[in-house]
Amino acid sequence: MMVQDIIDGIKNKDIKSLARAISWIEKEREEGIELIRNIYPYQKEETHIIGITGFAGVGKSTLSSRIIEKYRSMGKTVGVVAIDPSSPFTGGALLGDRLRLGSLSLGSSMWTDPGVFYRSVSNRGRMGGLSRMTGDIITIMSVFGFDKIIIETVGAGQSEVDVIKVADTSVVVLMPGMGDRVQFAKAGILEIADIFVVNKSDLVGAERVRQFLEEMLNFTDYRKGERRDGTSEEWKIPIVMTIGEYNNLKGIDELVQKIDEHFDYLVSTGRLKEVRKKRAKSEIETLVSDIVVSLCYKNHSVDLDEFAKKVSNKKIDQYTAAEKIIEKTMTENDIVNLNTSHYL
């Protein structure tokens, strides 16, 4: 299919075109970059991007399935990007989040609801590339026109944290018995929360997790200086206690209400523009560094091994080596008519 067909398709709300466009991004096809170049002006300002993260096993997928159902009952359309890790050894992945999506055998189906578009993607061992991919998918989904876009990812490390940073509202999900404070702090997922959720809150220890969060919010500076929108004194980070299981639902309405309140807050205070500008800045930064790196190493006249040999034999120092590589790349390449797609 041609890029123009897909663009028209997306504008006409054709699911097949949307699905294919995302595949181009996922598979790092050149068409994907061309597509983004063409559709970026049509992104909808009012699209609310929600990030949901937490350690494996906290019930994120089930929870986001309940959030989707709630939004549908409110008449909102939802696009979902569910990210799962791939094996570092084989590159294979089992994308298991869709499994939790409510289906007809359980009552009503989110699988066939025309207001829901669900896409499972793997992190494919990407590092910085993961947030770039997610950002591009969000761009496409925003042009398609979903009211809400949910990004769901395992909060396992820095790259996942970066992914969630593209969201307007970040929800961090915890559960009782999931390790100690040090672990939470190490993963760096606490700093990014706009909303905390203690899921499976019927389990023993739920109250303890809440107390821990409250203490942390009271005693640290998370609400003052360091948050990315710089406004935390105005937004009081809520802690919502939930249960995502159908037979024992709890706190879903409250959670959705808090998520929406956060967006209203961003909009009414004008902070949304700052958040989106930060997202754009980080996207540009990543791209520039990706391109430069790629330029240097895809350049056949640069023999990295040769430089490595020289440095390890103490012939030259590593700073000089790096300078030489960049110098050589810059002088030998046509920097003026750079075609990014060759380097991504």
Binding site: S86, S87, T90, G91, G92, A93, L94, L95, G96, R98, L99, S103, L104, S105, S109, W111, T112, S120, S122
Partner: peptide, 17 residues
């Protein structure tokens, strides 16, 4: 998965749609 593919499993009891 172990052979390197990306796999999505629907789970049980799905309709044709």
């Amino acid at each position: 998965r172990d052979s390197g593919y990306e796999v999505i499993y629907t789970g049980l009891h799905k309709t044709a749609e």
